[in-house]
Write a protein that binds this DNA or RNA. Sequence first.
RNA 1: GGAGAGAUGACCGAGUGGUCGAAGGUGCACGAUUGGAAAUCGUGUGUGUCGAAAGGCACCGCGGGUUCGAAUCCCGCUCUCUCCGCCA
Length: 433
Amino acid sequence: MIDPKILRERPEEVLTIYRERLFDEAAVTTAQEVLKVDTERRRLLNAADELKAKRNAASQGIGREKDEAKRAAAIKEMEGVKAEIAALDEKLATVEVEFERLMLQLPNLPAENVPTGKSDAQNIVTREHGEKRRFDFQPKPHWEIGEGLGIIDFERGVKISGTRFYVLKGAGARLQRALIAWMIDVHVEQGYTEIYPPYMVKQACLFGTGNLPKFGDNLYRDAEEDFYFIPTAEVPVTNLYRDEILDAESLPVKHVAFSACFRREKMAAGRDTRGMKRGHQFDKVEMVKFVHPSESAAALQQLLADAEAILKGLELPYRVVKMCTGDLSFAACEKYDLEVFAPGCDEWLEVSSCSNFGDFQARRAQIRFKSSKDKKDKPRHVHTLNGSGLALPRTVIAVLENYQQPDGTVRVPSVLRPYMGGAEVIRKDGSPR
RNA sequence: GGAGAGAUGACCGAGUGGUCGAAGGUGCACGAUUGGAAAUCGUGUGUGUCGAAAGGCACCGCGGGUUCGAAUCCCGCUCUCUCCGCCA
């Protein structure tokens, strides 16, 4: 949620940003409605508060009044006031619900340094790292490598769960598990505290991170109870401190969490159906930070570097892409993607997305901080950031495709060998078919 | 799933219709005292919202109701604890 005060005090500025930076006319319209509703809201609020002040004063008087006749008269008068208050409160409640509903739909405002652009075409490749490997044979896509080695079973995945599901087996499953364990270890080393979060959360959590109300059609949920399956560990981990006031001295708080992620991918129907690039369920290691507002810009750069350390450790060629305003996600004010090159499918795969949300999520989730030392310090919203470090299936794809050999085997990246029982090469494991 | 008990500020705990945003204690912060500390004494110590300010309003698990007035009464819900059942 953006700060309602900014919208109220500098409406033209906000509208211009929505129109000329985000190219989001729906947001412009919504913001204009918010302004109207807000004016009405404050009018009703002031009127109701005034009457309540009158009632409270009178009620105290009634409590002290000994004269029965005067007492009865005062009560009689207050009955009228009571009805007026009830009427105003009812209107106010309606207006407040509307205000909230609209505010939750407004996207975050981009940071100043975010380039203006309408689509991903205006994104900027900030830097590239590592050379694309030169092959003296035709590199295969991961689905061929995986099936050849008997470590990915697409057919059975579809049989038991349907399209967009696959099964990892033997060294394939182990490779993924090795990556998870190693990545978490790296991030812990970087100062992140490991979290094992619930994979199912209450609806309020999704409003907190900004997935709801706008993106509900990408979420799985329990039909009977208030449970949503998390689309990313960002949701439970960010909500860890929902409705809390953190000690300013404890910032920055840095967490790393591994979790399965569940996404309906309805919007992307038909896209990336081949291989394991886009599934309904995938694993991801996620970093989440809660920082002082003055430090979030630097914290984003560090977060990016922390994610990049994984790709560097794996010795995979990657590039850093800075999102332009039009490609920024709903809740982010600044965002970078990390794309790894997969020579088999011959494309850059997005394996990480590192975002600074400013106070947007903190405002929705009411995550604040205050100094425990300085008594005059008022609670303020923290800034939240998160970034994948990294998304698993695509990292597995990149490893398989970049480390493949002409005979169909795959070398194990050296950092993973200790996590793979010392194995240096993945060979055909003798699958039952 | 069945039965019972409970939910008040950072924490403990009082409060069963009126000056209660909430006694008392602990903790914490600042000050006094001290060579320094402990002990002691004093002062202070929630959040949100509206307002230029003065100040107002709201919040005692959550939501509704009764009343001129609700932390206190009524209804619904959630959560926690104990016992039983079941289970990884």
